[in-house]
Amino acid sequence: MSNGVVNGETAPSGPTSTARGGRAIPGAAHEGRLWRLSDTPAAWLLILPVLVFFSISVVYPLAETIRLSFFDIRGLSAPRYVGLGNYIALFADPLFRNTIVTALIFTLGVTAISVSIGWGLAMLSAFAPAQTMPFRMMVFAAFGISETVSAYMWIMILRPDQAGLLNSIIGIFNPGFAHAWLGDQNTALWALIIAASWSAVGLPLLLCFAAVQAIPKSVLEAAYMDGARPTSIMRHIMMPLSLPGVRVAIFINLLNALRAFDIIFVLTGGGPVRSTETIGYFMYRESMTQFKLGYGAAATVVLLIAVLVVSIPAILQRTAGAK
């Protein structure tokens, strides 16, 4: 059963899908190997439109970005080839180094908070799935809200005067309290992390809940019959067996947080004094505000590499079973 869960983490409803025939290609099992793309030229024909679309929308812009990163382009002036000059300047730029640190704190913070809360809520929801469905839907709805809309909502929550929701709640216990959460360098980044985590909880909740639901009832029933308490069941059965869902949630939220831009742009604009500037925002500022396209492109490539560093191990791990 546990193998089934591990191998089936992408399909929340089918942890043992291979055994049940849900994901295997019909006939493949008879030949003793998995079906391969190269088995038929028709397959290439079928994926050709996707390949063309992918090339136009992803490969070409990516290649163009990499090409631009080797040029010094300022404003509307003519490009000047500088080789690795932009990359050398980038890593010598203290602002960029600061950006990397900020991006790491933001990314790890958002991922840790959102996945922990999502996972915890999934555990609790699993004890009463039907009754908690509206609650889960509400939490997941936040995941579907545009980051910009979410950011404007958080502006109202975090506004610096006593009319801000957070300040007014604290003001119940401490009358007259007002703190500029987004204007204070000590709190701005954490306020951003909380705001970004709010909308990121939905996905871990969904994935972890699905993973828990995939645990065979017989295992849980056996635990009950052996006298296990709910906390023990959660700790020793539900949590370990829902780890595949947690891993996917970490992977997706890590990538989303690493690429975050909208919420930072709306809430703080990278400030105060650049204290909330992540790689995505740095890239925007250099490319669009200062229009140093080549420099901005170099920052984009660095961000891409960071995303790949996060993605490749996860992809390899998740496709390790494929032959």
């Binding site: 506004r159 610096p160 007002a178 703190h179 500029a180 204007g183 204070d184 400030g271 105060p272 004094v273």
Partner: peptide, 10 residues
């Protein structure tokens, strides 16, 4: 003026 953090948040 207001506090620095309020100015920087507005």
């Amino acid at each position: 003026c207001a506090s620095a953090s309020t100015m920087l948040a507005s």
